[in-house]
């Protein structure tokens, strides 16, 4: 019985959100407001148990690593983020987290630029590798705005546009697929878990 009520609540809230398709209404507004609150409220005990206890409480109070008090105090400065006069204090925990971008300087150059360029420079051994080469170069030229896209240069960058259009078409096709898949999931819930029509 309890399970039936639970599934009914989930189905009711699902339908409340779907009701927005007809038009905005109090059921949708209620569900939306509840979702925002529950999502945030849900994170608090989870962070407390999974992050605060093992990384702050245990090291300080059980393992007596008192040095951890410093980063804990640093972290608590986040709370001043919205204060008019003391907002600057929140910069300390923020910069501490941001510093790791230092790693991304060599690492992103490696994975997104160098490895990709290396693969773009393979010997052209067929029509496909030739097309990939032409596409990559013409699009890179298209994004070079220091020279006006006119004359022969304009024609070359135009080729880049065609390649991009095919790329965007592929992305659009997959986006349609993704959205439909999500709806399928919800309808599987309504028909299966709630109404028991599919199993």
């Amino acid at each position: 019985m309890f399970e039936i009520i639970s599934t009914f609540v989930a189905a009711f809230l699902t339908l409340s959100i779907f009701s927005f398709l007809y038009k905005d209404n109090p059921f949708y507004k209620f569900a939306e407001a509840l979702l925002v609150g529950v999502s945030m409220g849900y994170a608090i005990p989870l962070v407390y148990e999974n992050v605060f206890l093992p990384y702050v409480y245990t090291p300080i109070f059980l393992s007596h690593k008192f040095i951890i008090i410093i980063p804990a105090l640093l972290g608590s400065l986040y709370m001043f983020r919205f204060s008019k006069n003391l907002g600057w204090l929140a910069r300390y925990p923020i910069v501490f987290g941001m510093a790791i971008v230092g790693m991304s300087v060599p690492m992103s150059i490696h994975s997104s630029v160098l490895v990709q360029m290396r693969s773009a420079m393979l010997p052209i051994d067929g029509i496909n590798t030739a097309l990939i080469f032409i596409g990559t170069v013409t699009i890179l030229l298209y994004f070079f705005f220091s020279k006006a896209h006119k004359g022969i240069y304009g024609k070359v960058t135009n080729v880049g546009i065609w390649f991009m259009m095919i790329g965007f078409g592929a992305s659009f096709g997959y986006t349609v697929m993704a959205r439909v898949s999500l709806l399928i999931g919800r309808i599987q819930f309504l028909l299966g878990d709630w109404l028991g029509l599919v199993r």
């Binding site: 962070v47 407390y48 992050v51 990384y55 090291p59 980063p71 709370m79 925990p93 987290g97």
Partner: peptide, 14 residues
Amino acid sequence: DWAKAISPFAVSLG
């Protein structure tokens, strides 16, 4: 160690 100890407080922002 420090990043781990700072991190739980970020939830307070939200």
